[in-house]
């Protein structure tokens, strides 16, 4: 656990790598978005495709292909099974992808079956309550969770055992709650988690900050903590991080890419460098802002290691929740 956190910290402190000489350029670059058009993965692919062309990093425009199914599992199986040697292919991914892989729900597929390229933005999970809630601080919430764990309803957008469920449990664990499996989490569909909080039926909102931004600006909700390494920019700068409140949980819901395992090293270098170039650009900063994403840069080997750590965390909590052996 500690190691994992150090690793995240490292990711944020890493300085830009020197751009290596380009001895590989993809001929038919392709980005698979494992969802329907319009979703987060689709936007990640399309934005990167546009910026690759704008920065002349590709000769031919990167194509975007939508391949929805099984929360990204269909695209993963396709990549491993049928595109294992394609050096021109990257696939959009996020924390949901590693979660899926950590449970072993995809038959015979492991997170090690692909090469992890990098993450270049993140939506950080928050602990938010309605503006008239009895919980003024994260401490008061955690105290209640310790004393009467069944009296608080946590609501998020992801499934039971999904990221919106596991992140607050990590925080509760750090806050001294013993039996985290006893906490009540309700899986609402995207968006409903917000209305259920406003309607007063759920007490705590646990999904990413981007989903509740409008309500926060309007003062309808209070954000008790954000699970980011340091405070976010702009209007969010008043929100304390969980870490500064004394609960060392940093948990980015990252947006990034993986590639087929058989990708050549030259191609891998090309893609990591391309991501670094894009991440450092003003254009990407704009894309991030438009999608409610905060800055994050974990590219190459460090990202690979981070994914390994994240899978371990997910496995630990999935076991406690009885979702896997």
């Amino acid at each position: 656990m500690k190691h994992f956190l150090q690793f995240v910290a490292l990711g944020f402190c890493a300085t830009t790598m020197p751009a290596a000489a380009q001895d590989y350029t993809p001929d038919a670059p392709l980005c698979i978005a494992p969802a329907n058009p319009g979703g987060g993965w689709d936007l990640t692919c399309r934005s990167v495709a546009r910026l690759l062309s704008e920065f002349d990093l590709t000769e031919n425009t990167m194509q975007v292909r939508n391949m929805p199914g099984a929360g990204g599992g269909v695209a993963f199986a396709y990549t491993v099974g049928q595109q294992a040697d394609n050096s021109d292919l990257v696939v959009a991914a996020s924390g949901g992808t590693t979660l899926l892989l950590s449970r072993g729900e995809l038959p015979d597929l492991e997170y090690t079956d692909v090469r992890w390229i990098g993450a270049i933005g993140a939506d950080f999970p928050v602990i938010a309550v309605r503006e008239d809630s009895e919980f003024d601080t994260l401490d008061s919430l955690l105290e209640r969770l310790r004393e009467d764990p069944r009296s608080v309803v946590l609501g998020g957008g992801s499934a039971v055992g999904g990221t919106d469920h596991i992140r607050p449990l990590q925080l509760a664990r750090a806050g001294g709650v013993e039996d985290v499996a006893n906490l009540r989490y309700i899986s609402f569909e995207a968006g409903t988690a917000v209305t259920e909080l406003l309607g007063g039926r759920s007490h705590v909102f646990t999904a990413g900050i981007s989903e509740i931004a409008g309500q926060f600006e309007a003062g309808a909700v209070r954000i008790l903590a954000v699970m980011a390494p340091e405070r976010l920019d702009g209007a969010y700068s008043e929100i304390p991080t969980a870490r500064e409140l004394g609960y060392d949980v940093v948990a980015p819901n990252w947006r990034g890419f993986y590639a087929p395992a058989g990708m050549s090293d030259a191609a891998y270098d090309y893609w990591t460098n391309a991501l670094l170039t894009i991440e450092a650009s003003d254009e990407w900063a704009q894309v991030r802002q438009q999608n409610g994403l905060a800055p994050l840069r974990m590219v190459g080997e460090e990202f690979n290691t981070y994914v390994t750590e994240e899978v371990e965390v997910f496995r630990e909590f999935s076991r406690e929740l009885g979702l896997m052996e």
Binding site: A213, G214, E217, Q290, N291
Partner: peptide
């Protein structure tokens, strides 16, 4: 959102 408008009460 992509066009920089945050849908919400405001």
């Amino acid at each position: 959102v992509g066009l920089n408008v945050t849908p919400g009460p405001l």
